[in-house]
Write a protein that binds this DNA or RNA. Structure first.
Lengths: 240, 240
DNA sequence: TGTACATCAGTGAACGCGCGTTCACTGATGTAC
DNA sequence: TGTACATCAGTGAACGCGCGTTCACTGATGTAC
């Protein structure tokens, strides 16, 4: 059987896991310090005091490493979003939306190159795998945001202009998720979720890319105004 | 005096201008076809059937070429925005805002890599000059948008939550421009202009970076909803 | 109109750089009997 | 417990690529007298 001395086997496996983690950690440090172009096998190896090709024992290709990084970043981000949301009472959609929005910006500011990477800034020469580098995290993000809209929909729904959205306007997988998890939600609610996402993304990406910094010293204040305005336009009462 | 035979001198100057234009045209084609990494002196020269270093007769450095491209793109973009706005009656801020917003998205969709370049997607190794690669276009963009907000402010102002913005919250140059061109406009109007910009930027950049395509087949419809909603929340009546 | 000179776009070879990836190998770690 | 074997992380040298930039040069275009 597989009664192979678990201790020693674990030792090698542990070393392997540690080195894998170190490769990723160094890659993220380089990303943060020097930008996406610095994610190179040679650069990481240099930093770790190894040869570049040693990394091929851990990742079959540079692009696999990049995909793994994107997946890790996106997963950690969405984890924080969910945690922030769940720290607010389930029956208070306004607070939950604002918590999500604040965590959205906070993570991005703490991690600018990570935000760029996750939102599609291309690493030179990188080609993402079929289905994207982080499909599961993306699904969680989408579900989380839709859930917040679903909670607000009783108040928000009547305020939406009745643009004629149909299920056919949206991607099949997205529709399937919505109909299964939020069966009462109509198509315009999905459009609303996308618009809310874009409002967060818009201000935060202008800020991360340095376009807002040349205009205002209070990007956070502007973001807060925008989010409270959003809450209000959904027919919810902003807290505080 | 300078009565140097203008015809012949013009001939050489014209050739020079033509080659300069061709370099830029080829660079933009490469940008559109293969992305920002393809903007290389060697690549452009290859396409034009010249040697790479011939380009040094026209641009002192690769980064100068890139800066020129960004400036050209931004200038053409803002030109279209202004034209679209000015095609609407001056006393109809709602139409003017929507025209601006539509032109914003239309140009970006016609020119995705151009949009990426202008909004800060980095060409590997590129360092922008002091003050940015396109300060004049940026100024026009900013003034144009602020002007639209100024026209809407009589209706929009009272609807803004009174977040306590002060002039000190904004960049000095921006403040100077506002106070000179739109002397009646208060600080919260500037914050509103930034938020409006971000709403356009958010949806369009999600679309350009391919994040919206995986969710909806009707990104244009979503954008239109968002913009009409914006107009409405400014207290204006959306046309049609 | 013709001739001597200046300008300057463009060539061709080269330098030095960093990159991803391959290959044959070494040597320590772990496994089977 | 000891020995023969298997695994596999890591080395060192090399390949081929594209890049920006420099240098000494050629040769056509334009200028001054």
């Amino acid at each position: 059987v597989n009664g192979v001395g678990p201790q020693t086997q674990t030792r090698r496996a542990r070393l392997r896991a540690e080195t894998t983690a170190e490769i990723k950690r160094v890659a993220l440090e380089l990303l943060a310090a020097l930008g996406p172009e610095a994610i190179s096998l040679r650069g990481i190896a240099r930093e770790m005091g190894m040869t570049a090709n040693a990394i091929y024992s851990y990742f079959p290709t540079r692009d696999d490493l990049v995909s793994t990084l994107i997946n890790d970043l996106y997963t950690s981000w969405v984890g924080e979003l969910e945690a922030a949301r769940d720290a607010e009472p389930a029956d208070d959609p306004a607070r939950r939306l604002l918590a999500w929005a604040d965590a959205f910006r906070a993570w991005a500011l703490a991690n600018p190159p990570g935000f760029r990477l996750v939102s599609g800034d291309r690493v030179p020469g990188y080609r993402a795998p079929e289905g994207g580098p982080a499909p599961e995290a993306e699904r969680r993000f989408c579900t989380g945001l839709t859930g917040i809209v679903a909670a607000a929909w009783p108040q928000a729904g009547p305020r939406q202009s009745d643009d004629a959205y149909r299920w056919a306007d949206f991607d099949g997988d997205l529709v399937a998720m919505v109909r299964q998890r939020f069966p009462d939600l109509p198509p315009p609610a999905v459009a609303l979720a996308l618009r809310i996402w874009a409002r967060m993304h818009g201000l935060v990406s202008l800020e991360i890319y340095g376009h807002l910094g040349g205009k205002t010293y209070e990007a956070g204040k502007v973001y807060r105004s925008e989010m409270r305005d959003l809450v209000r336009s959904l027919g919810l009462a902003p807290p505080g």
